[in-house]
């Protein structure tokens, strides 16, 4: 990993600039993205309306009643000068218990068949490493995480499902995610968690933030029910 960056700053709209730090997806980039996130929020202060980090970039949406684009560029360049990556421990750690089962994760056995292993093995391998939350998008609290081991990589479903239940854990290519609420979706579903990802009654409304580290933990049906999990099978539609 290089110890200095040459960020590129691109105009993307009247009140938005894209900070481009990298050209490829890599977990090793996240400490830099997190450091840039902190530095930009500090430097722009009240003039920052929204800051959207994602894989290789940060979208800065600033307040044009306070800053011209030239002024915004200068502040952003100042903020990023001499940037040092955040520590590897930056971002919070989460353990997410998952009931891996065909009834709630129909692609579990399909992937197992393809690899010539049993479903427990697929579950163990999916749960066998720490994932990094690269970005949130698609829906509130939906984190794009990775990278899953190469052998498990599976393309999205050709026809997305109309309804994927809340808590469904899926993979698409080498990324993995959890559906925070029932929604349409095309990811391969392996199981379900009872953990609430987006909860307006909680102080931390979204459980995940960009840069967090996530580890899945296979649990039994009984443990899933005990945690308040909904065992209704994922209906094929």
């Amino acid at each position: 990993m290089s110890q200095s960056l040459s960020p590129r700053l691109e105009t993307v709209g009247m009140d938005a600039l894209m900070v481009r730090l990298f050209d490829a997806i890599d977990e090793a980039h996240m400490p830099w993205i997190l450091a840039a996130d902190t530095a930009l929020r500090e430097r722009l202060g009240e003039a920052m309306i929204d800051l959207v980090p994602s894989y290789t970039t940060l979208l800065v949406h600033y307040d044009v009643s306070r800053l011209s684009q030239i002024e915004a560029r200068k502040l952003i360049q100042d903020a990023l000068r001499g940037l040092k990556p955040a520590s590897n421990q930056a971002g919070r750690e989460h353990r997410i218990p998952v009931w891996y089962d065909d009834s709630v994760g129909p692609e579990l056995s399909r992937i197992a068949e393809r690899l010539g292993v049993d479903t427990d093995d697929v579950a163990r391998r999916h749960a066998g490493r720490d994932y990094c939350a690269f970005a949130l998008g698609f829906a509130p609290g939906y984190a794009f995480m990775g990278l899953v081991e190469e052998a498990l990589a599976t393309p999205r479903l050709k026809t997305p499902r109309q309804r994927v239940p809340a808590g469904s854990v899926g993979i698409a290519e080498r990324q993995t995610a959890i559906y925070p609420m029932r929604s349409p979706g095309g990811w391969n579903i392996l199981g379900r968690t009872a953990v609430k990802l987006f909860d307006r009654e909680r102080d931390e409304i979204s459980l995940f933030r960009p840069g967090d580290r996530v580890r899945f933990e296979p649990i039994s049906r009984e443990a899933f029910i005990e945690q308040g999990g909904d065992t209704t099978p994922l209906e094929e539609r």
Partner: peptide, 10 residues
């Protein structure tokens, strides 16, 4: 492209 933030009116 790798997904990135989208401004209003993009």
């Amino acid at each position: 492209m790798i997904s990135e933030g989208i401004p209003l009116g993009a």
